[in-house]
Write a protein that binds this DNA or RNA. Structure first.
Lengths: 119, 119
DNA sequence: ATAACTGTATTATTGATATAATACAATAAT
DNA sequence: ATTATTGTATTATATCAATAATACAGTTAT
């Protein structure tokens, strides 16, 4: 699976975002066990400490729970997942609209531009 | 004028983005003299060195030109400004679409969400 | 002429991030 | 029972970003 880590922002933040995305869009299934910290770090080609930091953030959000000597598990709280997914979508839309608005692009132009993209 | 600098990304990058936005959307007029480095830094409540770094980036892009002992001036190349404005708008749209797509949101849902926003 | 203001450069210090190299205790696998 | 694997913690080092405090030479304003 693709781990596209750039160096324009803190690596651990990008890891949190990617992991969260995979949980919210179902790439990682509810209740499933994640790869180990070391294996995930290997996949993403980052230091295990950095991946550990990212996983810590995810646990704070309640998206994973760690069982000390067994592994990290995706939450089974699908309500939480759906809520966060909706929340994230809305905040993306809001941020995007604010940006193009500031650029002086109208709503109609914006929708035209989006229609040109392929989903 | 509002300088909303957060600490989630390098300050000088955010300054570049804000200054570029103001040039592209016409807040800063073509050919006009900018405030001095120190005054801009004061407005944005950042260190003058940081503002200076941002202005250096803008000069690389050709959006401003500095006259050593007089000040920094907005480019008069309106073609460049329009090009960059279009370019920026398109890349914003593309990045946004990629994000919502990854979240599993359809194009129709996306356009609905945008229609709810007020431009 | 003098003073104030310009962009620009330099040096030092601090904090955040990332990596590296280990270490440990508890569990799972053999 | 032994070994390997788990999350987790610690210490050290390097780099980047940001701020601070100056300094300088060349206009511009008075």
């Amino acid at each position: 699976m693709a781990w596209e880590i750039k160096n324009d922002r803190p690596v651990y933040i990008q890891l949190v975002e990617e992991l969260e995305l995979r949980i919210l869009n179902g790439t990682y299934t509810t209740g499933t066990k994640l790869l180990s910290v070391r294996d995930l770090a290997g996949e993403a080609q980052v230091n295990p400490n950095t991946m550990q930091k990212a996983l810590g953030e995810l646990e704070k959000k309640g998206l994973i729970s760690s069982r000390r000597t067994s592994g990290n598990y995706i939450t089974e709280d699908e309500g939480l997942i759906n809520d966060l997914r909706t929340e994230l979508a809305e905040s993306e839309v809001e941020a995007f609209c604010e940006k193009v608005k500031k650029l002086g692009i109208t709503k109609e132009e914006t929708i035209e531009l989006i229609n040109k993209e392929d989903f």
